[in-house]
């Protein structure tokens, strides 16, 4: 099965994020960049599917030349080749979905696997928009993905519990945290990745409308959390929860 895995480069979750004084963005000096953790889970799932059924895992990202590094990491994990759609400006979810839809038209994968959201802006939109544009079935927040014939069965994590849905390929599946634990990129894998195909395509050559529909006006750090208060006993705690917090 040919699987396309779109990935995004995001700041390392362990990095302390600082908002620029003018609120135009975050300070990027000395920020360590990684593959969006949900996308890494998507890569892992794609590799496991390939290991079982054969096929090809193709990575794609949309960003600057420096994003190659995250593609190489994915190739080091075991993906077969990668595509970088080069675009220097940040794009909104709709533009990203449009680009992906265009590339999918050329690549013809049977499955698109991607993170349910990126941990930088937490938009949680690209997968859904993409499925709609392609007219493909979609399953978001996947915690289990199984195949039988040409049918996929996906277990989804929803507010009330788990939901299981089945549909035909081709399809779009977005991954949740508990789907798998991604492998490490091994050192021989890192060496091999150097020789794998990484194609760069300028975004403006695709003939896709990239005009932003979303404008970020300003960014601000959340207000500092007030220190809590210590209570003396369980009895007092219950009372305070009842009379002051009014939660019980």
């Amino acid at each position: 099965m040919k699987i396309l895995v779109p990935i995004k480069r995001v700041p390392d979750p362990a990095t302390t994020i600082r908002v620029l004084p003018d609120g135009s963005g975050i300070a990027t000096d000395n920020v360590k960049w990684v593959i969006n953790p949900f996308d890494e889970i998507a890569i892992e799932e794609a590799l496991r599917i390939k290991e079982k059924q054969g096929g090809e895992v193709v990575l794609i990202t949309i960003g600057q030349s420096t994003w190659q590094e995250q593609l190489r990491t994915g190739l080091a994990m075991g993906a077969d080749r990668a595509i970088l759609i080069k675009n220097d400006a940040a794009l909104d979810s709709l533009a990203l979905a449009r680009i992906l839809a265009k590339v999918i038209g050329d690549e013809n994968p049977e499955l698109v696997l991607l993170g349910k959201q990126a941990i930088d802006d937490d938009s949680n939109q690209v997968g859904q928009m993409l499925a709609e544009m392609l007219g493909w079935p979609q399953a978001t927040f996947a915690s289990k993905v199984e195949f039988a014939d040409k049918k996929v069965t996906v277990t989804r994590e929803v507010d009330g519990g788990l939901e299981t849905i089945a549909f035909n390929l081709p399809a779009v599946v977005t991954t949740d945290l508990r789907l798998n634990e991604p492998r490490y990129a091994s050192l021989p894998g890192i060496m091999k990745a150097r020789k794998k195909e990484l194609k760069e395509i300028p975004a403006d050559s695709l003939g896709v409308d990239l005009a932003p529909k979303l404008k970020i006006k300003t960014l601000a750090a959340p207000p500092k959390r007030q220190a809590g208060r210590k209570v003396g006993s369980v009895q007092e705690l219950v009372q305070v929860l009842h009379t002051e917090a009014k939660v019980i």
């Binding site: 190659q68 590094e69 080091a76 490490y184 990129a185 050192l187 990745a193 150097r194």
Partner: peptide, 14 residues
């Protein structure tokens, strides 16, 4: 190089 950084990151994560 990106391979050197990737090597370090893999070991650190491990």
């Amino acid at each position: 190089t990106s391979e050197e950084r990737a090597t370090r990151d893999t070991v650190r994560r491990f």
